[in-house]
Design a binder for these strands. Structure first.
Lengths: 350, 350
DNA sequence: CTGTTAGCGCTTTCAC
DNA sequence: GTGAAAGCGCTAACAG
């Protein structure tokens, strides 16, 4: 038989008033102690300690909704991303969440599905939820709503891309430089016929990469073949489809530059179906290093974006803008990518 | 020269009272119209239409914080995950977010870093933020806090694992069945020396897989080699380390069963370093199908978990529990995985 | 050193 | 058909 008395289930307290009643104190005093303001208001040690002990004993945790309403500050941030299942965005989201949590903020995660209407709705939803700030990788198809919210005083930081014609601060990779590096590498290995499968047009990340591709080709004085710049989506399916198109051409390229990790996966699927291998039949360089890049049938040469740094700088810039009341876009940054050379480019120099 | 008058910037309205003042109506009426209760309160067509037009004109969107405080319902859900950068969890998160948004809920995303203390803190944080429900893939190292919140009346659904000894509803893969399939496949191909690199012990997903592994081996009447069950983390590094350990053994296995996608990536890294190839030197079967599984140096045989279904069922179960006031765990589910056979297992039958 | 009171923006009961 | 007033839980003037 069990011979000790069951601990009485401590009555749980539901709000600061109940807790204050238990203590025969006012809610004010309890609030002050719990917010670490005992010093300022010169509340006695004794009272302080009693309050803290009681809060623990009665499992009191403050209602942050009420707090947010009063303080007009929710310690909540919005994060809008076109596809959270994409590991590129997944790892950025992780950095942001972890850093935010450390600083006392929570993240409301929103997936825009790369759709402008969803994005717009999400933006106003977040505004209605009174988030203290927003980090967004915008679809870029229409900037007015994000600009409008900025004008209403909500601090916003754009990641992965920037919005030309706006004063929105951004943190991105230097996509132009990355593309330049990638295509120059192909050129050095003797490739002259290089195709480029691009993602969503109208997004700066995409157009900057295309520009880098074009400029790299021009440095060699090679004529640009417009048929070899194709595609319109960062997803896998687009990579697959465009590779099929490319390989059906009379004038086939010897190399493909993929503008995203998912696109290169689609390329691999198409090539496999066609019985073609990398790099013997076609060389490939892809944007977005991934944990598996080194272990593919042919270890892939990739452009690595500094994902962790992007997340980190974005969240810190946002928090700074929140605390300092929007210091405009003086702090935008374009981070340098890195080319990781592996075996997916065949040397065809004679 | 431009000959039309600039549209006067419509004064933005900050709350329902300001809007009501503009309309010379009471906040009550405005609230009723905006919440679609015109009928119930028999508000005139005219008034209704005027309110709706004004709301649009003055860019009014309700303060959901105030609404949440009043209604004791925030239309916000918490999602706690051990690692959002892991694409397995990333895609589950996506399904959950998209479905939740469609039903009018927002998601507060939390990364527990697979750490119990962080998890506990996060749980109370979410409670303080008055989320209407929580979906969690718990670390499993201590269940008391999640049970406590459940007892306080917050609907909770566990995913990816279940918590024995609790009445928490869960949605998981049938991990036992998945492991059984995987190992039986190896046995059929003639493998008798099969190692198992496991993830975090103490998590049902892990122990069920190990149990499946053990039982599969027993069906063949082969003795179990305890040295071949090793590891303690679902991450890449653990896969790498344990493979090194395994290959340093005098008595090497001919096949490895990896209990996560990340672990198998670690295995590949270690084998590459050792100059060993799959499947000639060692066969591999891994849990967690990935978009790249088919394109690895050796296309990998994997156990696919129904990620989308897990996310979908979890969010729907949670919403049901929210609306019906916690219908206990009668609706838990264990979903069947699928074995995708590729080329990473060598047939060594004589 | 502590307490009273007002008010954040919303919805709802009760009143007319 | 519409409105006044109370109150959700919290914090910050103001008061003593």
């Amino acid at each position: 038989m069990c011979n000790f008395v069951l601990q009485p289930m401590n009555r749980k307290v539901n709000n600061i008033k109940e807790l204050a009643d238990q203590l025969k104190l006012s809610p004010t005093t309890v609030s002050r102690v719990l917010n670490g303001k005992s010093e300022i208001y010169r509340i006695s040690e004794t009272t302080s300690k009693k309050v803290i002990a009681a809060a623990r004993k009665f499992h009191y945790y403050p209602n942050r909704i009420a707090r947010g309403l009063k303080l007009e500050k929710t310690e909540t941030l919005g994060l809008i991303i076109p596809d959270i299942a994409n590991p590129y965005f997944g790892s950025i989201a992780k950095t942001i969440e972890v850093e935010a949590h450390q600083k006392g903020y929570s993240i409301i995660l929103c997936d825009s599905l790369d759709d402008v209407e969803t994005e717009t709705e999400l933006l106003y939803l977040l505004a209605g939820r009174k988030v203290d700030g927003i980090i967004i990788a915008p679809t870029g198809k229409s900037n007015e709503h994000v600009v409008e919210l900025q004008q209403q005083g909500i601090p916003i930081v754009v990641i992965d891309r920037y919005l030309p014609g706006t004063s929105l601060p951004f943190i991105t990779t230097d996509n132009y430089a990355g593309a330049l590096m990638a295509v120059k590498h192909l050129l050095e290995k003797g490739h002259q016929q290089i195709a480029c499968i691009q993602g969503n047009q109208g997004i700066s990340a995409n157009s900057d990469r295309v520009k880098g591709y074009v400029d790299a080709i021009h440095t060699k004085g090679i004529g640009l073949n417009e048929d070899w710049i194709l595609g319109d989506d960062f997803g896998e399916e687009n990579g697959y489809l465009q590779t099929k198109n490319l390989m059906a051409l009379a004038d086939k390229p010897t190399a493909i530059f993929a503008l995203s990790n998912l696109i290169s996966l689609g390329i691999l699927r198409a090539l496999k179906e066609l019985g073609l291998t990398v790099p013997d039949d076609v060389s490939v360089v892809s944007f977005d290093e991934q944990p598996y890049s080194a272990f593919l049938a042919c270890p892939m040469t990739t452009v690595e974006q500094p994902r962790e740094e992007i997340g980190n700088m974005a969240i810190n810039l946002l928090l700074k803008n929140i605390s300092e009341g929007n210091a405009v876009n003086l702090n935008s940054a374009m981070l340098q990518p890195r080319l990781i050379v592996r075996e997916s480019v065949k040397n065809i120099n004679i």
